[in-house]
Nucleic acid binder design. Structure first.
Ligand code: DGT
Ligand code: MG
Ligand code: MG
Ligand code: ZN
Length: 592
DNA sequence: GCCGTTTTCGGCCCGACTGTTTTCAGTCG
């Protein structure tokens, strides 16, 4: 039976909880928690990996070691009677559910479940609320009036989140962050405010908003008081001297940390994360005799503390290259930084054009047409100082046209480019299409019509759930047609809406590298496809990439920054990305 | 349970906040 990453992470956290409650070695507990974190941040389905490569497929992701991999292998084959199931059975199952409420961990959950003999995980939240309403929790050892209220509040927060997405798409997160930052800047004592955490690392989905503030120490109290009074606050999770957290009416958490200017560098480092990166960095520092925290670097022997206003100096002090936030995921970036071998990441300024925008040209496609005309899109390209642009509308609908009509439509488009190119001498035009990869791997366009194209983007818009071997063969076939230069939004995922296709990426990447077909990094915030993890994998096969916006209106062309963020998170340098090249190099690439 | 250009054994990040405590455990970032 298929196990989703979400279920798997919960499973591993449950084992960790069972171990906490049975007093197992604390580092073994941490190993299970780390494994759960790794599953959460992995952008392929671990179960699929296992299904096709076995234990090696699990080990490959990093973050899970040989023992847990073996246990998972056994669990996936048959959970009944498996080691993992056995561990879980030592604790009543409602504990694992109750733990999901924020602020309730294994110990509190167990205490309550045990005391009242709860046995049904499906009703545990209602059961506990009922018990609380009868004030039976406050009389327990270690509990009181306030903590009884907090339990109910935690359950309500959890339930309130159930029908919402767990993680925000980037634009939503930016909007929320901006709103809070604007609100905080009403306090004149706020010298600087900045979004850190996953937002600074530009992760594709954002769990909460993390803000760092610079201020003088005597103003902290005033600033914190202002923060928790944010109009959208629903509950104040915590309110301390230099940090506070609230949950908004939409169920979104906002964390704030305040620090003085002299120590901001260390705070930037800590609060940008990721957690895995921080732990690896701290372990690395310990070996060199230093202990790190969000305020500075302590020499363990002498106790001397160094402070840092700049984050770069913090890394350099440890003998490391500065690590760009997008690389701080706790994979192997610290090793590279120690050897001064980190990549020089691509920037938005490096992008000189793109290959996937939709115009309103009446190509009569089976999917959606763009909103703006060639002219309007080209004006935008000019504004962005692009040197070239490929129009890639969806192919003309094959069900509504004869092959001859399709050929006619494509030729019309090509002919209209002649005048257009004269008008826009500074932007080299390419006649392209985004062609459907049909379920059998053939392209939704007559071969003759492609003769009028300079290139085409091929992508999947149907039959997303084919089995891995069929899907792999389908894509290989599609990539073998002439004029195919770009594999568009390769996984076809829609964040929070549609899963990635299941395919043997090793085979696809090998073929793409060999045939000089670029993998698209689609910048649309609900796609971000290829996902960053696969970008890095493809890079190791020598693949090349294009960063496209898939713009359906001119304003969408500004989304390119999101695609660049994915590229950076995939460790790409300028040279790995085709649309950083000049016109002549592009023409060469298309001919190859 | 994991892992290795100083280790295959012996270490493993570090601190803030809360409630119920008379010194701390639990939970979280
Ligand atoms: N050293 C250390 N730092 C942590 C730990 N937990 C969190 N942090 C730091 C690094 C995180 O990026 C930062 C913000 O924490 P969050 O829980 O908000 O995580 P992050 O923003 O990375 O991901 P998110 O999208 O919110 O799930 O705080 C920890 O256990 N140890
Ligand atoms: Mg966060
Ligand atoms: Mg946070
Ligand atoms: Zn598409």
């Amino acid at each position: 039976m298929h196990v989703s990453n979400k279920q798997l992470a919960h499973l591993l956290r449950s084992v960790a909880a069972a171990y906490i409650l049975t007093d197992v070695n604390r580092f073994r507990i941490i190993a299970y928690q780390k494994a759960a974190d790794a599953v959460d941040s992995y952008n392929q389905e671990v179960y699929d990996q296992w299904e096709n490569k076995g234990v090696d497929g699990i080990l490959e992701m990093g973050g899970i070691g040989p023992t847990i991999s073996q246990h998972l292998d056994q669990y996936f084959k048959n959970p009944h009677g498996s080691f993992i199931e056995e561990q879980l059975q030592s604790i009543p199952s409602p504990v694992y559910e109750l733990m999901l409420a924020p602020g309730i961990g294994p110990k509190k959950a167990y205490r309550i479940v045990k005391e009242f003999g709860l046995s049904d995980p499906t009703t545990v939240f209602d059961d506990v609320k009922k018990i609380a309403s009868e004030h039976k929790i406050s009389v327990l050892d270690g509990f009181g009036e306030k903590s009884e209220e907090d339990v109910v509040q935690a359950i309500n927060t959890h339930i309130g989140r159930l029908d919402k997405e767990e993680r925000m798409a980037l634009p939503e997160a930016y909007t929320l962050a901006m709103d809070v930052m604007n609100y905080m800047q009403k306090v004149p004592e706020v010298e600087h405010i900045e979004a850190l955490g996953s937002l600074r690392r530009k992760v594709s989905t954002i769990g909460d908003i993390d803000l760092a503030i610079i201020a003088e120490e005597h103003t902290y109290e005033k600033i914190i008081a202002h923060f928790v009074s944010y109009p959208q606050t629903s509950t104040i999770e915590s309110q301390g001297i230099n940090k506070a957290s609230v949950i908004t009416k939409n169920g979104k958490r906002i964390d704030v940390r305040i620090v003085d200017k002299d120590r901001y560098g260390a705070m930037l480092q800590y609060f940008t994360g990721s957690k895995a990166h921080n732990i690896k960095l701290r372990e690395y520092a310990l070996k060199k005799g230093f202990s790190l925290n969000e305020f500075g670097i302590k020499h363990v022997k002498t106790g001397k503390i160094n402070t840092f206003e700049r984050e770069e100096d913090f890394y350099n002090f440890l003998g490391l290259q500065y690590v760009e936030p997008e690389l701080r995921e706790g994979s192997d970036e610290i090793k590279f930084a120690a050897r001064k071998k980190l990549p020089e990441l691509i920037t938005t300024q490096d992008v000189r054009g793109e290959f996937h925008v939709h115009s309103s040209f009446p190509i009569e496609p089976s999917h959606d047409l763009g909103l703006h005309s060639f002219d309007e899109m080209l004006q935008e390209a000019r504004n962005m100082h692009y040197e070239y642009l490929a129009f890639s509308e969806h192919n003309p609908s094959v069900s509504k046209h004869t092959p001859e009509e399709v050929i006619e439509l494509v030729r019309n488009k090509k002919e209209s480019f002649i005048e257009l190119q004269k008008k826009y001498k500074d932007v080299l035009l390419f006649n392209s299409l985004e062609v459907d990869i049909l379920p059998d791997g053939s392209l939704a366009i007559p071969q003759e019509a492609t003769e009028y194209l300079d290139l085409c983007v091929v992508s999947i818009h149907s039959a997303f759930t084919q089995k891995r071997d069929i899907m792999t063969a389908r894509i290989l076939k599609a990539l073998s047609y002439p004029k195919v230069k770009i594999f568009g939004h390769p996984t076809a995922r829609l964040i929070n809406k549609r899963e990635e296709i299941d395919v043997d990426w090793d085979v696809i990447f090998k073929m793409a590298a060999q045939k000089n077909i670029a993998l698209e990094i689609n910048s649309f915030p609900d796609r971000l496809d290829l996902p960053d993890g696969l970008v890095r994998k493809a890079l190791s096969y020598g693949c090349k990439f294009v960063i496209d916006t898939d713009a359906h209106k001119k304003e969408d062309m500004g989304l390119i920054m999101f695609g660049v963020a994915v590229a950076r998170r995939g460790w790409l340098e300028k040279n790995d990305v085709i649309n950083t090249k000049n016109k002549d190099e592009i023409i060469d690439w298309i001919r190859k």
